[in-house]
Structure formats: structure tokens, C-alpha cells
Design a protein around this nucleic acid. Sequence first.
DNA 1: CTTGATGCAAAGGATTTGCACAAAT
DNA 2: ATTTGTGCAAATCCTTTGCATCAAG
Lengths: 157, 157
Amino acid sequence: MKDDLISFKKLLEKNGYKFTMGKRIVLKTILDSKTHLNVKEIYERIKEYQIGLATVYRAIKVFNKLGIVKEININGISYYEMKIFSGKPLHIHFKCFKCNSIIDLDSQSLNFDYLKLNKKVEEENNIVIYDSNIMFEGLCSKCREELKCQDQQNLEE
Amino acid sequence: MKDDLISFKKLLEKNGYKFTMGKRIVLKTILDSKTHLNVKEIYERIKEYQIGLATVYRAIKVFNKLGIVKEININGISYYEMKIFSGKPLHIHFKCFKCNSIIDLDSQSLNFDYLKLNKKVEEENNIVIYDSNIMFEGLCSKCREELKCQDQQNLEE
DNA sequence: CTTGATGCAAAGGATTTGCACAAAT
DNA sequence: ATTTGTGCAAATCCTTTGCATCAAG
């Protein structure tokens, strides 16, 4: 087994789960993906291995419970990405209204600012924050440029 | 008609919708509620007026599209709260892992900090942010106290 | 009158579950 | 050997849609 999977195996077994082939393949698929995947997408990618849809759902449920993956809801559908060992303390997502693309915003300095704010939120409200989900909606830079060009053309007419 | 509903009527009609009794009752229900409601909850509260579930869904879809209400997804279910004319520029939500309650965090100074951060995000990424969804998960102050008490008792045993 | 709105029931899509069987420790 | 995992199909839950009818402007 690849070294990088051993930590996951240990984490699963510590919690009474078996690190089966199904779970391994689902996990690997999420690990290898550059973008967030939903269950259907994961299933499509791995069904050649004879893995059922229910197994994918069950594996992800366990991963989510153990904090291995992070769930992001976009238009009522759940997408998943790695959470632990991912090197990202915070995930800020941005959804473009126009092209519907989801962009990860992970600037070092922004993350730091947000973590500082988290601390303030915790103190002000006497709560403990384990996880934070931040999702912005708006116009991405590409769509923004396109709109600018259109405006220009409208003016010239 | 109550004064405070006229702005909504105008907004709807400007966009080609009729401000019917169904929409009015659904809107009033969300307006009057102190907490976020899901469609089923709204339907339960107003079905005595002979309003069908589909009507509730359709009304909310329009409200959401026009920015009248804000949609919040909690565990795959959509909840709704007022967005425009609500006096809150930003809604930060907190969900307690233990008691599952959803708490609104709306401190003036925090909101200000977040809006400032939004500006920074916009500049760094050359995007425009129309809306932001921030949801924290963790331990609320009440559950935190309870856990503290339990720890105390465990130590004394 | 014309157009959008409604209620109902059926359809749709995502997720869960019951069950018999298979696989892991 | 025992316990958890799996595939399949059925069931469930939330949401949307088609259609005939109704109501608002």
C-alpha cells in the first residue's frame, strides 16, 4: 500500500471500520481529483471496478464523519474534497453566477485573516469553532471581463 | 395591505410576477418567523389557508431569485430567511455539533470585519462578490458549559 | 380576456436502507 | 468465526413538473 494511505487506514480502523478496497478506491478518487466531486461523479469514475453506488455513499458518509473529507453543498447537491492532510486549514469557495464555476480561494494571507476573525468570533460568542464553511457568490474575473467588453460594444452602437 | 408589504409587491410586479394571496402568505410567514424555516415548516404553518406544497415551493423560488429571501443549506435541506429590507448586510450562521441548533451571529463589529475582508477578497482575485454564506460548526456556549461540568465530575470520581 | 398562478398527483433526482451474500480481521 | 462491507433493488425524502382550472390585472 502506498505510504500516504496508511494514515487513513489507521484512522478508519481506530474507529472500527475496515479499510476495504471499496473505501480505498473512493478515497483515492477524491485524493487525485483537483476539483470537488459529487457522488455521481465519483461513481462514474470508478464503476469499472464493480463498485456500487450505495458503497460510494456509505464510504463517503464514513469519511465525512471522521473528518477525512469535507462536504460542500452547491445547489442542493453535495460535493466532496479532502479535509485532513490536505495542508489547507480553511477552504473558501467562490461560485460564479454566470458560468457556474466553483473556484477555490486559498491565498495564504486571506486564510490567515479569516482564522484571526474566527478567533474573534469564538471569543465574542463563547463558542468553539471546529470547522468553517465560507462560500461567496458573484462574478468571476473571466465573466467580469466579458461583461465589460459587452458594455463597451453597447456604448459604441 | 400593510405598508411593509408594498415594497415586495412592487418588486414582484416589476419582474412580471403577480403578488397573489399565496405569495403574500408565504412571505408573511418568513417575515414573522424568528428562525430559518424550510419549505415543509412553512407549508405546515399555512396549510390551513388551503395552500398547496407546490405553491410554497414556487413562491420561494421566485423570492429567492429576486433576492427577497436567502437560502441556507443545512444537512442537505434548504432553509429560508429574509434577505432584503432585513437590516442585516451579512448573515453568519453557527451550527452546534452537539445540540444541532443554528445560531445567528450578528454582531455589528464582526459584520464590519467580514465586509472589509470581502473587499480584500474581491481585490485579490479580481472578482465581484454579490453574496456571502458563512457557516461555522462547533460547540455552542451552552453545550460547552455542559461538557465542562461533565469533565469536572469525571475528575472528582 | 390574457397571462400567470394554483392544487393535485405524478415524475424526478439524490440518498438511504433491507437483505442475502461476500470479505476482512 | 464474527463482524462489517457490498451490490442490488426498493424505499424514502425533497423538489419539480404537467395539466386542467382559477384568479389577477
